[in-house]
Design a protein around this nucleic acid. Sequence first.
RNA 1: CGGGAUGUAGCGCAGUUGGCUAACGCACUUGAUUUGGGAUCAAGGGACCGGGGGUUCGAGUCCCUCCAUCCCGACCA
Length: 481
Amino acid sequence: MENQKEFTKEIADMKTDFAQWYTDIVLKTEMADYGPVKGTMVIRPYGYALWENIQKVLDNMFKQTGHKNAYFPLFIPYSFIAKESEHVEGFAPELAMVTCVGDEPLAEKLVVRPTSETIFGSMYSKWIQSWRDLPLLLNQWANVVRWEKTTRPFLRTSEFLWQEGHTAHATQEEAEEETMRMLDIYDKFARDYLAIPMFVGRKSEKEKFAGAEKTFGIEAMMQDGKSLQSGTSHYLGQNFSKAFDIKFLDKDGAHKYVYTSSWGTSTRLIGAVIMVHGDQRGMRMPPFVAPIQTIIVPIFQNKEGVLEKAFELKSFLEKMGIRAKVDDTNQTPGWKFNEWEMKGVPVRVEIGPKDIEKNVVQIVRRDTFEKIEVNADEVKETNFIQNLLQQIHNNMLEQAEKFKQEHIKDVNTIEELKNAVDTGNFAKAPWCGSIECEEKIKEETTASSRVMPLNQDETNEYKCVCCGKKTKKKMLFAKAY
RNA sequence: CGGGAUGUAGCGCAGUUGGCUAACGCACUUGAUUUGGGAUCAAGGGACCGGGGGUUCGAGUCCCUCCAUCCCGACCA
């Protein structure tokens, strides 16, 4: 009883500080530990299983759109990075370098990759000769390093896991199409698998990728009203093809520079899942990527037949493609309930002597805590659980969508903007597009521009929140992680 | 790099103006009884009190110094 009180108090304290709440979930659910090197992470098996499921789905989406996987080196000669001037300028402050081996200084410093445009570029210039070699659509799953001053598990780590796609095309149109296609894939993936409704749009000049012509991104709204950039897709134009001399002989007999794109998403998605769906009891795993979709908790498990029934149910579920687990550890049922709720397993099945007698099981949803008694045969022989997982997914998406809609404020002055972001909202503000205004807004409100929504209705004319100049475009501003 | 705080067991912490064998909770080990919302009892293991130096008969406690971590800024495609 005392423990229960302590735990409840812990949860209450957690709620008072969102950042602390987040960190606690990360540690308590064993998603990650801090590594001995500041800002790096150790992902434990439960958290890594989530990442593996994310990988699996995304990888399949990439392959269906004609992409192939490849692997490029971890070390990049510094001179490669320096070839594209904006690129080196953008990344220089956070590059980790290898300058010597043993006691011997290296002739050329090596950069631990922060991103791989340059190394892909250097190879693409050798591989691409003719228009027949295009488009070249490659992706790699890898780790990258960006030395950050302040870090937070999953949201901002010095080393993180990601995928980066790098493509080369014969024409601008094709490269731009590719950029938008991948943006759309990220958006769909977030919605259909993570149950996260994203803000989709174009990044400002200030916020765009160093070396890109245009950057597009998906942004998720966290429960404290801050924004998390969750995936980006860049149209790179000919910036990298000129820097790395990636030319092809076109049908018309002329040598031309290719147009490239790149796009990436990372273990940050895990952070997004926690911060969008987590509640006071811990995390809520989106059903379709959940490491465990159904946890079976036997009651009176040392009584004859209980464990057998539990494992029998598990194998039935597994045959239907459901990731199921029986918790047969020597803990009390109450302990197990709390444990798996904290870890966010979407569906819990309780099975005990009383249930076995009646040939039923008790099913509890993680999203609503609704408890229902269901005939055991129905669970074993129909797609009852699949349907339930779908319903939970839909409900989580709806909740997130509702929260999102309730926390966008239309603003027309910089004061309104400041007020909106200070009270946990995104601000949708008319903006002239100038970097001066963007910087001033950042300075006065601490909010940065996130994305400019696509396909805006441009019939109305507004005044920029900052300078008052006429504009037809609105930009989303928010505090960001 | 500026401002603030904290370092005592795996985690969370107590330790009064310097004074007995450094306390407690969680976790862990063993055994028994338990199990439908974080079980109970009994027995046990685990600490060079962040490092170094100093003051003192005596330092977890006071002084100096270094180091580390956290928070707020700055920085962050």
